Simulated scan of single mutants.
Amino acid sequence: MNNATTIQDRQLTITRLLDAPRSLVFKVWTQPEHFSRWLGPKDFTTIGCQMNVQVGGMYRACIRSPEGTDYWMQGIYREIIEPERIVFTFAWEDENSQPKHETLVTVTFEEQGNKTLMTFQQAIFESIESRDSHNTGWSECFDRLATYLTAF
């Protein structure tokens, strides 16, 4: 079996049309009190979330699985263009709070009337399996995000 993959194979793109104005979608991505409410796959809870949303600022968050396992993530904001675009690094932490493999995430927000077309891109994963795992996790996050936005 050939394990070689192309760079394109190790990129993830998810697009969602959200029933909320762009300014609100941007807000819930950039304020910890909102971000922590929808971060994590289905049935996960956010138990910690720190965000310094500015170029060069760091974020760190922890999500807890239904079984009680904690997953810490961290990264640095590379670009913030309100309310259009957020670019940041993403890495899971090891047991010593050190970042593991780092990817780059770009999220864009495009007005579609009173709705927002959100495009999420993350790359470059170590493997197709890692990409697919993130696809599942982020897709469930975005389901939670869509539900959370209905509260406004």
Rank of each mutant, 00 (worst) to 15 (best):
E95G: 04
M58D: 07
W92V: 03
E140L: 10
N96P: 01
S139G: 09
R37D: 11
M118I: 09
Q31N: 12
Q31T: 15
T89P: 04
E111F: 06
A61G: 13
A61P: 09
H34V: 13
S139T: 03
T46M: 07
Q112I: 13
C62W: 12
F109P: 04
N114D: 15
E82T: 15
W38A: 05
R85S: 15
F90E: 10
Q121M: 13
C62I: 15
H101P: 07
G40N: 12
G57S: 08
M73G: 10
Q50P: 07
P66L: 12
L17Y: 08
Q31C: 01
G57K: 05
V107G: 01
R22C: 11
T116V: 09
G40P: 04
P99N: 06
R144K: 15
D132G: 05
P66K: 02
T119L: 05
H101A: 10
E111D: 11
F142L: 14
I86Y: 05
K42V: 00
E79L: 15
Q74V: 06
Y71E: 04
D43W: 06
K42P: 00
E140V: 00
T108P: 14
V55L: 08
A91F: 04
Q11H: 08
R16L: 07
L39P: 00
G113K: 08
E110A: 10
F125S: 06
P32G: 02
W92G: 03
G137K: 06
E140C: 00
G57I: 09
H101S: 15
E67F: 14
E67S: 14
G57E: 06
I124F: 02
L17W: 01
D143P: 06
Y59R: 05
W38G: 05
S130R: 14
T15P: 01
Q31E: 15
P41Q: 01
I80P: 02
S97D: 07
K115S: 05
V105S: 00
C49I: 03
I86E: 02
S36F: 10
N114G: 15
E111W: 10
R16Q: 04
F142W: 00
I47L: 08
Q98C: 00
V25L: 11
K42G: 06
L104F: 09
H34F: 08
M58H: 14
W72Y: 10
P21K: 13
T15G: 03
R78M: 03
T89Q: 08
D19N: 12
T89R: 05
T69P: 00
Q11E: 13
N52V: 13
L18T: 06
V107L: 08
T30Q: 07
T13M: 06
C49K: 03
R37N: 08
G40W: 13
R37Y: 00
C62F: 12
T30W: 11
T106S: 13
G40A: 12
T89M: 11
H101M: 10
T45S: 11
S139L: 00
L104P: 03
Q50D: 09
Y77G: 00
G56T: 10
F88I: 12
E93M: 14
R85W: 00
I81T: 15
F90K: 01
S65N: 01
T69K: 10
S23P: 14
F35R: 07
E82W: 12
S127E: 06
E93R: 15
